[in-house]
């Protein structure tokens, strides 16, 4: 249903795609954030390239439609440009864990105050179903008809190791839960990432599996070690929720203190005065 966060762009996702769940969850999150004092003008979005990227066209929010694998780097620039903004990078698994993986690792390492929402469907769906960094071993697609021989990446364990201060996993089929995770991630000061299990109805339909296997984490692990253990857990259940959250110094404050290049910009007259002094 069109609403005040929708655009006039025609939605071209496949009917039933997990991306619809992510879009709904994000709209709910944006409204909850408004209730908590973050207005839409201060919520800025960015996307990469792939099926997920179209979310940019469907959300009536400010932002930038970035390159494949680069949305995480782009929002770091936005945050430095105006630290008052809440910046959100949407990415696919190919974006975040393939072509843009170095940006993920460095954003986590420096604890950049950004949020990355990864639409993780374990396939390159826009180019019609090739294997991706999170495809299961044995995944068959048009680029590997005999199946992949590679183990998939474990993005949560990787992000923990890289130093991310907020790590969560959501499921596109559990919209309210996902929406709450998004709110927490965006409010978290520091690098937050949500790996969203996103069924692709055409190329990697995981609805049945995740409807049966996902289980909300009762309590966020208390230690880093417990979080790692949970992230590497290969039990029958697939835990969703917050895996790890810790308060750490954030990059822009370490770099610039409380200075904001937009708010604290020297007025034109003062700049002219300074130039005259130098001359």
């Amino acid at each position: 249903m069109p609403d005040d966060l929708s655009t006039s762009a025609e939605n071209t996702w496949c009917p039933g795609c997990g991306n619809f769940g992510i879009l709904s969850a994000f709209k709910k999150a944006a409204r909850k954030l408004e209730e908590r004092g973050i207005d839409r003008e201060h919520l800025v979005i960015c996307s990469g390239i792939g099926c997920h990227g179209k979310i940019f066209d469907y959300l009536r929010l400010n932002g930038l439609y970035s390159l494949h694998g680069r949305s995480m780097a782009t929002v770091q620039g936005m945050k430095l440009g105006n630290p008052d903004l809440k910046v959100v990078a949407f990415a696919g698994d190919g974006d975040a864990y393939g072509e843009g993986i170095s940006h993920m690792i460095y954003a986590a390492k420096r604890n950049a105050d950004i949020t990355v929402i990864v639409h993780d469907n374990g396939a390159y769906a826009l180019t019609a179903g090739q294997f991706s960094p999170t495809s299961e071993k044995g995944f068959k697609g048009p680029s590997l008809p005999n199946g992949s021989v590679e183990e998939p990446l474990n993005p949560l364990a990787l992000m923990l190791e890289a130093g991310a201060s907020f790590i969560a996993r959501g499921f596109a089929g559990k919209i309210d839960h996902l929406s709450d995770l998004m709110v927490e991630a965006i409010l978290h000061e520091g690098f937050s990432v949500i790996d969203v299990l996103q069924p692709s109805v055409v190329f990697n339909n995981t609805y049945k599996e995740y409807n049966e296997r996902t289980a909300i984490i009762a309590q966020t692990p208390r230690s880093y070690e417990d979080a790692i253990r949970l992230a590497k857990d290969k039990g029958t259940q697939v835990p969703i929720g917050i895996f790890y959250q810790v308060s750490k110094p954030v990059y822009h404050k370490e770099l610039m203190g409380s200075w904001n290049p937009v708010r604290d910009k020297t007025a034109r007259n003062d700049r002219l005065k300074k130039i005259k002094e130098i001359l």
Binding site: E99, L126, T127, Q130, P142, S143, L144, P145, N146
Partner: peptide, 20 residues
């Protein structure tokens, strides 16, 4: 060695088919 991008994808997929 290749990575998919529209509109190259079907070229590499054809090679994958021959490989399979």
């Amino acid at each position: 060695a290749a990575y998919p991008i529209t509109p190259q994808t079907t070229l590499v997929e054809a090679i994958a088919e021959y490989y399979a």
